[in-house]
Design a protein around this nucleic acid. Sequence first.
DNA 1: GGAGCAGTTTGCTCCAGCGCAAACTCGCGG
DNA 2: CCGCGAGTTTGCGCTGGAGCAAACTGCTCC
Lengths: 237, 237
Amino acid sequence: MYSTMDIALAPQTLAAMELFQGLAVSALETIAARTRVRRLSKDLRIFSQGDEEVRAHAVIEGGVRITQSGSDGAQVVIRFIGPGEMFGTVSLFTDGRYPADAITLAETLEASWSEAELLDLIHRHPQIGVNVIRIIGRRLQEVQERVRELATQRAERRVAHALLRLARQAGHSTIDGTAIEFPLRRKDVADISGTTLHTASRILTSWEKAGFLMTRDRRLTIRQPSEILRISEEAPD
Amino acid sequence: MYSTMDIALAPQTLAAMELFQGLAVSALETIAARTRVRRLSKDLRIFSQGDEEVRAHAVIEGGVRITQSGSDGAQVVIRFIGPGEMFGTVSLFTDGRYPADAITLAETLEASWSEAELLDLIHRHPQIGVNVIRIIGRRLQEVQERVRELATQRAERRVAHALLRLARQAGHSTIDGTAIEFPLRRKDVADISGTTLHTASRILTSWEKAGFLMTRDRRLTIRQPSEILRISEEAPD
DNA sequence: GGAGCAGTTTGCTCCAGCGCAAACTCGCGG
DNA sequence: CCGCGAGTTTGCGCTGGAGCAAACTGCTCC
């Protein structure tokens, strides 16, 4: 399943994380020593909605899918977490229960801190506290934008937006275009765009036929970002 | 328009705010002195999306509507702010621009702090920083729930949820039932539920006819919360 | 190598609710 | 008292996309 042991964590790895922006290298060295690092296999559940033993997590390599389900069975993807990003942190400060499920999308290297450790770190380095506010604040703005999209835009535009967001967040350039790091099923794209598997499949397939993107081995590569962008900005009429 | 002068701010007023939970009375007295308080008339724009002179705000009495508009004209209500709640705070920590518009729903008493003041307060009273994280975190969870609703539930359930949320947030008991403090037009209800004026009007009218709620002078009173609750929890099929 | 399974594609039907249009209510100012 | 404007109600037609069903693809594990 996973291995904790002997994974050396370089300070510059921490420096690349949103959580530790603006910290001195000396501080990072101390933090590295207090970090639990694990290598996780694909499709592993890191935590479940409602779990009470909360930790703050961050992805170093790979990716994690965060999903939330309601009292009815309905489920949506809250977001995908790529390298350098944190997850599961809000629960430390609110009710001490994870508000969602976290599952690895691929083999993933994950760092995490217990509540006590994180609070201690914030105490020693107030900048970390400000970073937490910044991260959560930015995420709040993103989710609010998603609310606006869901309420006012149609499925094709939402899928286009979702892809661009993913590319910005976890895309890396290849010979063919911008590839999204982690594997995505059609269902994932549907859940993050607020539509159904069927509609998402239709839309993505049509874009593949038009040459805007390609899927290989569950991984999406955007070949013509300009076209996706155009769709994401199309007039409502 | 508004008057700033000579509004005495009692420490216990501050103590009732989410931002100052857990602070000593002595601290609150100092804070009161550093707070700008204004009485604002109805329908006054407190700030606009994109404004760069950001402050942190809180409502003491009355209410504020927070709306966001996209590059296309589409607009949604992000949330309504009732007594004791903060607004416009996230922008202090992200990009220094308000991400939305804020307009008073009624005559409103508002407190606010400049960026420098708030940062100084957080520095003196770290608990305030933790409170900010808690507030933003809770709001993030709420918005994520709204995303789930928008993606998976139909209009009637969403309107029901929205009303219950508003009642919890800004409701007070009257002889007829739970009344929502501030005036709401049909359009407001539509925008917060992610539907259209027409659909919202139809739904609310049908509930009025069924006796579940009443509107008087733009103010909604929920007479049979159990019925609204039932609708909000109805099975999808 | 074939049975089984997870994920995808595609055709078809149906309806919630959007969009448009028109009538109606009510408070306000002249 | 009347006209006006803002907000609301209601009727009606149209359609995006949800929902269902079925075929297809390409794995993984016996």
